[in-house]
């Protein structure tokens, strides 16, 4: 297991990978199919996505386990296979990454809201533990708890990961710009609140993912840096806000457009930069080239 923190101490900005969902869909994953089941049924395709990002120049890749919590897998009746599917996800990315690149085990939100009482903390904690343990067993270097919106769920995930796995922990939230021009998650959490809460819960690296394009991420990182100047910040940015063209969903930001703003993102304080929805290997190649030429 390698340390991202140690690698970051050397001073270089590191490059992460791009979207997984988008890439799996282009390889034939249908809406309504369980993406994580592809770790077993379509291993070659999942490996292809992972390898595509390594070949594009990423220093690290994620795993196909975003919806790998028992709660999410339960929609497909696969909750009892959580450990198996997460371990398989990690093993595929490990194989693609080899020993020289990092693997981040993706852990997305469970889709249930603690506040409403529809689920107990104990149930969610147990789910996060199963996922974290399996990802570590499968060979990840760090866990990436991402697309979070609620402080309670994110902190529960960070603590559960800390208790059940020995690797480093990243936690990123998804923010949207409000009418007043501030950034908040759908649950109303600001970047500053996020930074304080998940750091206290034990995250080693904090940050933001998804969103509406690279430009908004610059503002979010600035907000985080007002509160926290020392914790490394990871950004996984969407290729803009999707639009519908001739019945097909298109993400408007090209690799060149994203790469042209990456300097400002680094200036703002980002330490690890990659893509989210709508990005592919070409976006990552453009980001990697620009970042390494700096």
């Amino acid at each position: 297991m390698k340390s991202l923190l140690a690698a970051l101490k050397k001073g270089a900005v590191l490059v992460s990978d791009g979207a997984w969902g988008t890439q799996l869909h282009t390889r034939g994953l249908k809406s309504g199919e369980c993406p994580e089941l592809w770790n077993i049924t379509h291993r070659t395709d999942v490996y292809g996505v992972a390898k595509g990002y390594i070949d594009a120049g990423a220093d690290m890749i994620e795993t196909n386990s975003f919806g790998g919590s028992p709660s999410k897998l339960g929609h497909y009746g696969l909750q009892d296979r959580a450990a198996e599917l997460n371990a398989a996800a990690a093993a595929i990315s490990r194989e693609a990454a080899g020993d020289d690149h990092f693997v981040l085990g993706s852990m997305g939100p469970t889709g249930v809201i603690l506040l409403t009482g529809e689920v107990t903390e104990a149930t969610l904690r147990e789910g996060f533990r199963i996922q974290a343990k399996a990802l570590e067993k499968g060979g990840v270097d760090a866990l990436c708890i991402e697309t979070m919106a609620a402080v309670d769920e994110a902190c529960l995930a960070v603590r559960a990961a800390r208790e059940s796995a020995g690797c480093e922990i990243i936690c990123t939230f998804t923010f949207e710009k409000t009418a007043a021009g501030e950034y908040r998650t759908m649950m109303g959490v600001s970047p500053a609140e996020m930074a304080r809460a998940v750091k206290e819960a034990g995250a080693d690296i904090i940050g933001t993912n998804c969103g509406n394009g690279l430009e908004g991420m610059i503002d979010v990182v600035r907000e985080i840096r007002k509160t926290d100047q020392s914790t490394p910040v990871l950004v996984h940015a969407n290729a803009g806000k999707p639009v519908l063209r001739n019945g097909v969903t298109v993400f408007p930001e090209t690799p060149e457009m994203m790469a042209s703003k990456v300097g400002d993102l680094i200036e703002a304080g980002a330490d690890i930069i990659g893509g989210c929805c709508g990005t592919g290997p070409e976006h990552i190649r453009a980001l990697a080239d620009t970042i390494r030429k700096r």
């Binding site: 506040l115 409000t178 009418a179 007043a180 908040r184 649950m187 109303g188």
Partner: peptide, 15 residues
């Protein structure tokens, strides 16, 4: 609608 409150406030109001 004006982003003055968020999902938690809406959920509690609905409850």
């Amino acid at each position: 609608g004006r982003n003055e409150v968020f999902v938690p406030e809406m959920l509690m109001a609905a409850k």
